[in-house]
Nucleic acid binder design. Structure first.
Length: 576
DNA sequence: GCCGTTTTCGGCCCGACTGTTTTCAGTCG
């Protein structure tokens, strides 16, 4: 039973309560517990077995009731309450919650009045105008439900950060042309740099909000206008929801904080405000009727006695407590990086030569880059063989000598991305591996091995004294391929024991390790390499921001990351 | 269901927009 499975049970309980119209605060409690569990860096089952209810209750947001259920789930695989609720409300009905602008109250009403149980049912009823006429429902609602169903089908789930960010930037660039725009900020999950994005949020300071609303809702790529008010509008643009909000300059900080979220972070901050007799909303910080701040985002934190919290940390994962104690980490920045320890060249499946990769690395201010071409097992990648290794080494030497002759402080490291085969062996012998500067081990085949086997496979690689880094440790491709089954706790413990570095692969569809696992690595004292896995020179600079953002979301500081070090130190940290 | 430098009971973030309504519920973030 994984944390994610336990979280899913509580999340579903919350969904069912929602449809049943339970006390909203109880629903919130279950949702918060689910979120906390999802992002926990320790194994909940282990905590439950070790310390029971008493130990579980120490986790914020988990009290007596949920702790008891966790123990029950750890022991039996589910809890009675959940099974009972599932009998009352069918899972299919809960899927309707995912339809935009259809909420739990509407679903409950339609279920009770018309016996609607799934999307097909709902669509049919709306098309034959069975909804209009029910209390509180009219023709417009029918129309909106059909639109919502269409949107749900055409655009399921969330967009990749790397897809949504350029859209948001182009909206900002378009709106910046207006004189009425004084300030403009991309907020929401984009500002927090979440790996996937539900919608684009933009905040504008202007004295002429109507002009902004008009311009926004008539942008070239707008496909549908969901709402258009005096200070807030919502559209569908290239299949993604985009919201805009206009405030006065005096409210900019408070609005930026509010609009950046996350929702649970905001609730946490506003609750702190309440305890101090303050009201915090998007217009400012108020003591009674008197505004005491809100022009700058810092005001919000200061008003409740907190240090500034960077957007990437605002997920209600302990950042408020850390800010209280003034121990917010000094997060890593792109400028801290001194090299890239995993790139490919045209000696395997890369598009660029060693020279070109080096030139770009130098332009990024790096002092080294490790060319880690594939080993032969990854057939389609045209991997290295023994003959190519020798020739490639000659070229690496030639390039390094020319840098030395020109007095350029840069070195190309000879590396390999060696396949960790399904029988636990490495794709190159130790005899060959020992001669590389850096060895990056990676799983590329047989993703379906069971958890125990896959974990042992990777741990065996870590135990090999020649293997320095494990690339993309979970193998996931966002929205395409689930991570393979692996016991992350065992992986972390083994990485610590064997002094193996774990990679944070910066490719936006990988971001692997993810933010939570990065934090876990930090807790275990395991070093991270933020690498690009660039297959062309241009990719190196383009994707690194996603890797660094994920590292920041994982609370990483420069010292947690191996490639913030000078070359000499890195060479000492790899095993040889 | 959670939580406690006002509380172990009585609170629980806050506001915009829409649609169906004459004052508000539902949805969203």
């Amino acid at each position: 039973m994984l944390n994610l499975d336990i979280a899913r049970i509580f999340s579903e309980i919350a969904d069912i309560f929602e449809v049943k119209g339970e006390n909203p605060f109880k629903i919130r409690a279950y949702r918060k517990a689910a979120l906390t569990i999802e992002t926990l860096t320790q194994d909940l089952k282990v905590i439950a077995e070790r310390g029971g209810v008493k130990e579980l209750k120490k986790i914020p947001g988990i009290g007596e009731g949920i702790a008891k259920k966790i123990v029950e789930i750890a022991e039996t695989g589910d809890c009675k309450k959940h099974i009972e609720l599932r009998r009352e409300v069918h899972a299919e009905l809960l899927e309707l919650l995912a339809i935009p602008r259809v909420g739990p109250r509407t679903i409950a009403k339609l279920h009770q009045e018309l016996g609607i149980t799934n999307i097909e049912n709902l669509e049919k009823a709306a098309k034959s105008h069975k909804l209009a006429g029910l209390p509180g429902l009219g023709a417009k609602v029918e129309e909106n439900i059909l639109k919502g169903i269409e949107q749900y089908r055409s655009y399921q789930g969330r967009a990749l950060l790397s897809k949504a960010l350029p859209y948001a930037e182009s909206i900002v660039n378009e709106l910046k042309k207006l004189d009425a725009v004084e300030q403009i900020l991309i907020a929401g999950s984009l500002r927090r740099m979440r790996e996937t994005i539900g919608d684009i949020d933009i905040l504008v300071v202007s004295k002429q909000p109507e002009d902004i609303m008009d311009a926004f809702t008539s942008l070239e790529d707008v496909e549908d206008v969901i709402a258009k008010g005096e200070t807030k509008s919502s559209v569908i643009i290239k299949g993604i929801n985009a919201d805009i909000r206009v405030v006065d300059a005096v409210s900019f900080g408070a609005a930026a904080h509010y609009f950046t979220g996350s929702k649970h972070h905001n609730i946490g901050i506003r609750e702190l405000g309440m305890k101090r007799g303050l009201k915090i909303n998007e217009y400012g910080i108020f003591c009674g009727d008197e505004r005491i701040g809100g022009e700058h985002e810092e005001d919000v934190f200061a008003s409740v006695g907190l240090a500034y919290i960077p957007p990437e940390l605002r997920e209600d994962r302990g950042e408020i407590e850390a800010a209280k104690e003034n121990i917010i980490p000094k997060l890593i920045e792109i400028s801290d990086l001194k090299g890239d320890l995993h790139v490919h060249t045209n000696w395997s499946d890369g598009k660029s030569s060693i020279d070109e990769m080096a030139e770009v690395a130098i332009s990024l201010g790096y002092e080294y880059t490790a060319v880690a071409d594939h080993s032969p097992a990854v057939g389609i990648a045209g991997g290295l063989n023994e003959e190519k290794i020798v020739k490639r080494q000659e070229e690496i030497d030639r390039v390094n000598e020319s840098f030395e002759a020109e007095g350029v402080k840069f070195r190309v490291l000879s590396a390999v991305e060696v396949d960790i085969k399904s029988d636990f062996s490495m794709d190159f012998s130790d005899e060959i591996l020992k001669d590389f500067d850096v060895v990056v081990g990676a799983v590329h085949t047989k993703f379906s091995q069971d958890r125990e086997t896959m974990t042992t496979r990777i741990v065996t690689a870590m135990e090999n004294p020649n293997v320095d880094i494990i690339a993309h440790p979970t193998g996931r491709l966002l929205r395409k391929r689930d991570p393979y089954e692996v016991d992350m706790e065992r992986l972390m413990a083994a990485a610590k024991d064997t002094e193996t570095i774990l990679e944070l692969n910066s490719f936006p569809e990988r971001l692997d390790l993810n933010d939570i696992h990065c934090k876990m690595a930090k807790d275990y004292g395991v070093l991270i390499a933020i690498s690009t896995d660039a297959h062309a020179a241009t990719q190196m600079g383009a994707v690194i921001k996603y890797g660094v953002a994920t590292a920041r979301r994982g609370w990483l500081e420069p010292e947690d990351v191996v490639n913030t070090r000078e070359l000499e130190e890195v060479l000492k940290m790899v095993k040889r």
